[in-house]
């Protein structure tokens, strides 16, 4: 899928962390593209590498403790080749990031206005008055009712939803092309969550930005995402449009996740539980299908020795061949090992 509109091209990126002197892959061989005007959701459970991917794109890792290979092509620049000073030209300006916990992402000693204009101090040459106007405009854009009052307030005076809006305002202050939102609504109530997602969508339409939305909430994904990448144990196991992933999920992991959700039609039944746990970094197998231990009834020969991505429909890719005949144990015609 090499088209001109792919402004972010992640090619074969692996990030390894140093544990007791040895390097272990937290994400391995990630290939992803992001286009303008799209929301790409990255889903998976905790420990599968979603946030590591985000921080790798942002270049937030300590080089002495991590080993990153591959290429992240952002509008023609390979981000991984940059030194820190050059990276800062991108961070905050062309790439904005929204963090999960809005309270710890804000400085408790600074007024909201100063925190938002700080980004502009670094990346723009606006005058004081222009910055002030821009702050009020941004707060208005993210749906804060009284921007003038909020600009003078401190983070602790705001509610969780308001704080998250401020974080979004900081992230979009310099009109970035790429916004990375790491679990932006996890700490919020459902009604506030809906409002925040609306704000994100509205901003994206206006700026033609691409958004990487990292979440474990499949409901949020189904409501907002254009494309979805499902991650398991540091790899992308399935990728496609939201319709493809939710209507015709192929990979056993995607299907298991969807099945373990409480839904209208399984009110009184037990929920589906995936056997076992996500392997820790040290115990990650180097070959074979990483999801295989959690579907033990699937015979070994159904898996590939070195699982690769297979295209099942235009734009819809699945890792490993085991999806072809995969059935849950209670489904008809399931095979057991």
């Amino acid at each position: 899928m090499e088209t001109a509109s792919n402004f972010l091209n992640i090619k074969d990126v692996s990030t390894a962390f140093k544990i007791n002197g040895q390097f272990y892959d937290a994400i391995s061989h990630i290939d992803l593209q992001v286009q303008h005007d799209e929301i790409l959701a990255i889903v998976g459970e905790s420990g599968c590498g979603k946030s590591t991917l985000a921080t790798t794109i942002m270049g937030l890792h300590d080089p002495s403790e991590t080993k990153i290979s591959g290429e992240i092509d952002f509008e023609g620049t390979n981000l991984l080749q940059l030194d820190d000073a050059d990276y800062n030209q991108f961070r905050g300006a062309k790439i904005g990031m929204i963090f999960q916990d809005p309270l710890s992402a804000l400085n408790p000693l600074k007024r909201i206005e100063d925190q938002i204009s700080e980004v502009m101090d670094y990346h723009t040459k606006l005058t004081k008055e222009e910055k002030h106007d821009r702050v009020l405009q941004l707060l208005d854009e993210v749906g804060i009712v009284n921007p003038k009052r909020t600009a003078r307030q401190f983070p602790h005076e705001l509610s969780g939803g308001m704080r998250q809006r401020v974080i979004i305002a900081i992230a979009i202050a310099c009109k970035p092309d790429l916004i990375i939102a790491d679990e932006p609504t996890t700490a919020l109530d459902v009604t506030i969550q809906a409002q925040i997602l609306d704000v994100l969508r509205a901003i994206q339409k206006e700026n033609h930005a691409g958004i990487i939305l990292i979440t474990h909430d499949l409901g949020v994904v189904a409501e907002t995402a254009d494309r979805v990448a499902v991650m398991y144990a540091g790899q992308i196991v399935e990728q496609g449009t939201a319709e493809q992933i939710f209507n015709t999920p192929e990979h056993p992991y995607t299907r298991s996740l969807l099945r373990s959700m409480p839904q209208r039609d399984n009110e009184n039944d037990d929920l589906y539980v995936i056997d076992g746990n996500v392997p820790s970094l040290q115990k990650m197998p180097s070959t074979g299908d990483r999801f295989a231990p959690r579907i033990p009834w699937v015979p070994a020969e159904a898996h590939e020795a070195n699982p690769t991505m297979h295209e099942v429909a235009p734009g819809h890719e699945v890792r490993c061949t085991c999806y072809k005949h995969f059935k849950f144990p209670d489904e008809k015609g399931s095979v057991t090992a």
Partner: peptide
């Protein structure tokens, strides 16, 4: 009603 309406639906076709 407002709480119920705010629950995200997993049905992509109806979003």
């Amino acid at each position: 009603k407002r709480l119920l309406a705010a629950i995200p639906e997993t049905n992509v076709n109806q979003r």
